[in-house]
Amino acid sequence: MMNKTSLIAIALLVFMGFFPLFVDSAWLAVGTTFLVFAVVALSQDIILGRAGVFHMGHAVFFGLGAYTTAILNVNFGLPILATWAPAVLIPMLVAFIMVAPIIHLRGDYLLVATIGFNIIFIQVLENDVFGLTGGPNGLFGIDVVRLFGYDFSSQTHMYYMAFILLGLTLLIMRNLDKSKFGRAMFYIHKDEIAAQSMGINVRYFKLYAFILGAGIAGAAGSMFSVQYSAVSPEAFNVTQSIMFFTIVLVGGSASLPGVLIGTFIMFVLPEMFREFETARYLVFGIAMILTMILRPRGIWPVRFGNIPDFLKKGVK
């Protein structure tokens, strides 16, 4: 039997699937950005919403994916397809090296530490370390995806690639939620002492969340760099990390629809209200404050109780 959430999800997927047929290229670009940022926000949600780790440096992983593709393509001439695997694996590796020493820190301390990593990351990019990152201007002239002599270079191609990436991400998160790993993250989030006492290795599962989140963010970064055929440091600064963090909390921690709504509000609405210029950010600031006061668990809060049907027999 289909529940309401799955129906909404399918309706949304169908809508997103046909979206390119109805809009001009400007809106198509907005749509693509939404898809890419939704993937990043979902990957932030694995760390923040599920494992409950106050991580405010997610733009690092997003940026690592983008720069990996950019550097390998622009500096070393690798085809985009060949950069995909490294764009996922390098953020995962960096996540492990960067987070393993600080994973035991309490929420607020860890938050500051992750912001520190983000600041260092931007410094490294701007200082053109090893002459690879292109300094403050970044890198441009990134190729498009080519396969069997075809060029996937149009906006529509970009859109559908991002669409597939979002679909894959949602699938992974669904699998995660239905596994021992996703549940362990929730248990740690809700009560770390109780989780430990049930035999859950807190460190392992927090790192698992980080590494998985970093890999997905890296994939989104790779796609982002191809979409704009350029990368530059300011797209991956602390402000961006704050945005991803905020999306999760405003939309609803650990709630897939919540995070998608959050992404829509933070990235698509600003596009729709362009004529209001900067005044729109005032509205968003107020909206963020109001959400936290009125709906502290987010616009669409997570609902637990996702258990096999045979266990619901006795429920009255």
């Binding site: 995660l176 596994s179 929730f186 809700k190 109780a194 049930m198 998985l212």
Partner: peptide, 27 residues
């Protein structure tokens, strides 16, 4: 110390954690 937002079944499932044989990629 229960996971109070989570359902009763999910709470009890946490006890199965150490018995579960799922591998790292099953996440």
């Amino acid at each position: 110390r229960l996971f109070s937002e989570m359902s009763v079944a999910e709470n009890i499932m946490s006890g199965r954690h150490i018995k579960s044989k799922q591998r790292w990629y099953n996440g």
